[in-house]
Amino acid sequence: MSVVEAESERLLAAVRALLLEKGITSREEIAERIRITDGGSPAQGARMVARAWVDPQYRALMLADGARAAEAMGIPMRGLPPLGVLEDTPALHHLVVCTLCSCYPRAVLGYPPFWFKSAAYRARAVRDPRGLLSEWGTVLPAEVKLRVVDSTADYRWMVLPLRPAGTDGWSEDALAALVHEGDMVGVSVPSAG
């Protein structure tokens, strides 16, 4: 048996011990990195979506340069991959997948959810996307085109979904509360109901 096939918790403890011993990192640095990473969450992306729904200028910025739009909301993007934003319209719906691994716009959506990393999601999204959407109860009318975006290289992608009907005059905060993780991946759509 190869040394790296050790049980994972033990392997982590051993790797951590060696990295600490060699001064490559410290316990404090690991804790700080965990804290920073835990700060990324779908609530960040939801704030961007809500702003885009009420502010045409912000929408234009978001579609042109997602990372700058995120920074404009106070989300740190320095050193991170470019963020692409996919604009849904009444005639076009986007669905994001990474068939090769699990590339995900972590700064604005947080850690990728379990399902996004699963073999079933990665396999089905590009071949049976409408069937896959039904797992979330999402049914696209036949006249709406579905565009699956396979995140294979340097970009990270989030979906800017359609603003739900019945939300005229709502505040940005109230709108942001309607937007969930899956809506920004494209497996579901926000609703005011």
Partner: peptide, 28 residues
């Protein structure tokens, strides 16, 4: 992408919490 052995697998859509192990590996 499209691999037949997974095409009939259901997707577990519910949230799974990350463990301390997961978070630390990610951080490292």
């Amino acid at each position: 992408g499209g691999v037949s052995q997974f095409m009939c697998d259901a997707v577990e859509t519910e949230a799974h919490a990350l463990t301390d192990f997961d978070r630390e590996v990610d951080a490292i």
